[in-house]
Amino acid sequence: MTDMKPVIEIRNLQKSFGKVDVLKGIDMQVAAGEVVAVIGSSGSGKSTMLRCINLLETPTGGQILWHGKNIQTEIDSLYKYRASVGMVFQQFNLYNNLTVLQNCTLPQVKVLGRSKAEAEKIAKDYLDRVGMLPYQNARPAQISGGQKQRVAIARALAMNPEVLLFDEPTSALDPEMVGEVLNVMQQLAQEGMTMIVVTHEMAFARDVSSRVVYMNQGVICEQGTPAEIFGNPQKQETRDFLARFRNN
């Protein structure tokens, strides 16, 4: 932890869809430079928590603070806030009507007000870093899943976000595509990017993250360093979950 003041602080976050309580009081802090891996079985609320952070879902209770300010009531602009919290989706969500390069420039021009030339320079820089610069003129329909996800990461990075949220970024990929995306993410982690990664990739959580959060049935069951969670889990649920993964 480079900065003791949390960038994101989640207090007693709750979210229900109708009568179904998906999140039942989440408390979590993320400091600058941290890489938090959120693990847990399907339906445990991991993705919902992540989606609440940039208000793709509206929380039904609790607070999310961004540098100490409540994102629902105290921040100046929802749009500016979202621009500073990048998101990478399971299904990539590249804009299908635009080329790879335009995918990375349009948000910069429209949301950050950068000039087209500046946006292209920045976009090309990040596309190069994820190895997708040769495909700058391709359309999303023309590239593979792993390539789409790398473009999606470049698009998020081009906005120069303070925090990057990853929602199961490799779950929709064929096994041989997973590595290329994880490599990019590992590189980002090493460069000090603050990241919250919802993932089923236990190797990534163990080797790359600075903290692992295990969620179960809408609450944080246990959290700690990768060594603590994977080496010496305290809760029975965590041990069962990890055992299921090892057996697979």
Binding site: L56, Y79, M87, F89, Q91, Y95, P107, V111, A152
Partner: peptide, 17 residues
Amino acid sequence: DKGQFEGAAAVGMTHWQ
């Protein structure tokens, strides 16, 4: 696809944009 709207919302675009 809903993902197109979310992909746009997540970078901070307005409904109109």
